[in-house]
Structure formats: structure tokens, C-alpha cells
Amino acid sequence: MKRLAIGLLGLMACGQGMADDAGQRVAAWAPSVTPGGPAFHAQTLRMAVHPSVGGTAPQVRVSNLYGTTPLQVGHATLGLQASGASPVPGSLRPLTVGGSASFTIPAGGEVWTDPVPVEVKVGKNLLVSLYLPDAVASSTFHQDAFETTYASADGAGDHAGDVDPAAFTETSTHWYELSAVTVAAPKHDTLVAFGDSITDGYNTPVSANARWPDALARRLVAGGIPLAVVDAGIGGNRVLTDVVPDVARGVSALKRFDHDVLSLPRVRTVILLEGINDIGNNAGPDGGPLTADHLIAGYRELIRRAHAAHIRILGGTILPYRGAGYFSEDGEKTRQAANDWIRTSGEFDGVIDFDKAVRDPAQPQRLKAAYDAGDHLHPNAAGMKAMADAIDLRKVR
């Protein structure tokens, strides 16, 4: 089988910008990625992708962003999900790069596949399959997918074109080696929900698409508002500092903003909800304690970079967390100060008061019991819906 080796020039030439409809594309799905994924050897991965918007000619961004060795893809396909690892019969299409059915991505690189001539329907899952013929020491992945991914056994070979799901004997709830899917949707723009585990949907039901960005996307579709929504949340992520040694929690928001937001097409609006992990871990810059001023400086830098790219950025207030494992009185004071600044400074292009939407009116430092997933930090599915419902859709257009 012909294999395309992609160097830096190849990454540029095979990218999304070469598509004829490049100016009409939006991101229908784009999870943030981190290092720390497991090793694979001659295995096929089959992953469910839930697009927030319909369109045509999907392209997939295959990622080796955190790989330490070249990533070889021997065969890749895209199809419509019937159920589990089963595609709709007749829906599988090859994913190619520069016309080649196999390709190699250097360590630290990513590549966009060629457009696939199929229609993507909003809310109807796609299945992306990657056959990895050579050993992958550590994969680029998204840890908390809350979606079932299927894999063949170690050494089982190429099953990317299988309609019968029998070869997919292993499951996980992670996404591997994928960082975006775009579609041609000429009347749409992209909205990025940028945050930590609360945006990532921690502790919501698997395969239910019950994260608050999912609920927001459904509201936008129902209201006829042409915005695709992508979820750029990472569990445990912080604004100011990397999470070390737990690299699966990602580099800081400041470091990943360019990749997770600015690299996506036609981003119009960002909703920023992040800071509770900085507060809970008292993680200030240079290893020192955190102050509200530190956090505000981080917000200002993200605002500056969004505005430099002509993107609107809305500030989400930090949710209550009394009762959570890392709650402290000093941390609560920092949270209140940060929220006061978000609400009153006027530096964001708008404010979404997530705190008000989910707090207990009688005990405002706590999540409302009906919205508490059980750890007093993360909202459950009902809380996620309340967060999405608190967003004034006029602010995100």
C-alpha cells in the first residue's frame, strides 16, 4: 500500500487550507488533546464523533501532537455510526492525505485528511477508524471522552474497513490521535467552549452527550442560530500552570489556547470557564501560592489573544465548590474575587453567570443538590443543562 511520509512541507500542503471550500468550513467537533495515552501495536481504533452541526465534505485532523515518534497510519476510514462499533452498511469511506491511503505524521505534527464526499447530519455520530500498523509508544489522546471507543486486540491488524464489529473486542472511554473534524457549512461560524473538567463533562453519562456545550449546541440548532460548538475542556486543567506529573490533565490554558482555539476555522466566539483547579490547588505561577490577581492576569492574556484574532470572548463565572476535596476558605475568597472581576470589569465581551445558575440559593458557596454529581464540584447532567440554559443566545451570535 502506498504510504505518504509527511514532513513539515507536507503538513502545510495537505492541510485544511488546500480544500476548495476552506473559507466555508467550521469545526463540528474538536476535543483538546494531551500526552499520556496508551501504547498500541498493529491495532485498529474505531471512535465515535458527535458533530454539533451538519455539513458536507468532512475533514479529520489526525494528531501526533504529543507523540515522541512518528505516527504511521496504515488505513483510515470514516462512516456513519449505526450502533456501537457497527457502521451503517455502505457508509464507510476512505480517509486519505494528499490522495494517499496511508501516511506518516512526525512527532509533534498533525495533518488534515482530504475532504470526504459525504453529508454530515447534526447530532448523528460518525465513526472514525485508524489502523496503526507499527508500535505507538505513547499516544496523543483525550482522556475523559465520556464516549465509548472500540479497538481491536494487540496485533490484530487492519480492521478499518470492517462493517462487522467482531474484531473490536476492547473498549475504553478515551479518544486517540484525533483533534478535530471540520465540515463545509457556509452560513455557520465556530464557538469554542474552553475550560476544565466541568466543560469536559466529567461524571456525565457515557455516550449521552450531556455536557453543557452539547446542551448549548442543541439550543443553537433549535433556535436556528448558525454556530457550531466544540468542547475544548480538559479535566484538571488550569489557566496558569501545567499539571505535572499528571500530563493527561494538559498544559495550561495559556499554552494550549493557540492550538485548541486559534487553529480552528472561523471561530467567532469563545466561552471561557476555567480557574477552579488553579484555586483548589493553590497553584500560582513559579510554584508560589495563587492570588486573584494572578488569575485575572491569565484571563487578561487570553482576552488579549482572542481579540488579536478578532474573536469575541465571554467570561464564565467559576462555580461554587464548598464540600469538594480541595475546598479552602482562602480559595473561596479567591473565587469570589475572580468572579467579581469577571462580572464587573467589562474586559470580557460578555458574562455568563454559571455560578448563579447552579448554586444553592440558601447556601451560595455550594452547588444546588439537584445539580451536584456527588463530589460537590462537578454538575450532573441536570446541572449541565442548567448551565447551557443560562447562556443568553444573543451574546454568542
Rank of each mutant, 00 (worst) to 15 (best):
A5N: 13
A5P: 08
I6G: 06
G10K: 03
C14G: 12
G17L: 13
G17P: 07
D20E: 15
D21M: 06
A28K: 00
A30P: 02
F40A: 10
H41R: 11
T44G: 06
M47L: 14
M47G: 08
G54N: 05
Q59K: 09
Y66S: 04
L71H: 06
Q72R: 08
G74F: 06
L80K: 13
A85K: 07
P87E: 03
P89G: 11
S91H: 12
G98I: 05
S100Q: 02
S100E: 01
S102R: 00
T104Y: 00
T104C: 07
A107L: 10
E110T: 14
P115T: 14
V116N: 09
K121N: 05
K121I: 05
K121L: 13
G123K: 08
L132V: 05
H142M: 10
Q143R: 15
Q143H: 15
A145Q: 10
T149C: 13
A151M: 13
D154N: 10
G157L: 07
G161P: 05
G161N: 09
V163K: 02
P165G: 09
F168K: 10
F168E: 07
H174S: 15
E177C: 14
E177L: 15
L178A: 09
S179C: 15
T182N: 04
P186I: 15
P186V: 14
T190K: 02
A193M: 12
A193E: 08
T199Y: 00
T204N: 13
R211V: 06
A215W: 11
L216N: 08
A222M: 04
A222I: 00
L227I: 09
V229F: 10
V230C: 11
D231M: 08
I234P: 04
I234Y: 03
G235K: 04
R238F: 00
V239F: 05
V239K: 06
D246Y: 01
S252Q: 13
H259W: 14
S263H: 01
E274D: 14
D278E: 12
G280V: 14
A283V: 11
G284A: 11
G284I: 09
T291E: 10
D293T: 13
A297S: 15
G298L: 06
Y299I: 03
R304S: 15
A308T: 08
L314P: 03
G315E: 04
G316S: 11
G323R: 09
G325H: 09
Y326R: 15
S328Y: 00
E329D: 15
D330I: 01
T334A: 03
A337Y: 01
W341V: 01
F348T: 02
V351N: 02
V351Q: 08
I352G: 04
F354D: 04
K356F: 14
R359K: 13
Q363C: 13
H378N: 10
H378K: 10
A381H: 11
M384W: 04
D389S: 08
I391K: 00
I391F: 00
L393F: 11
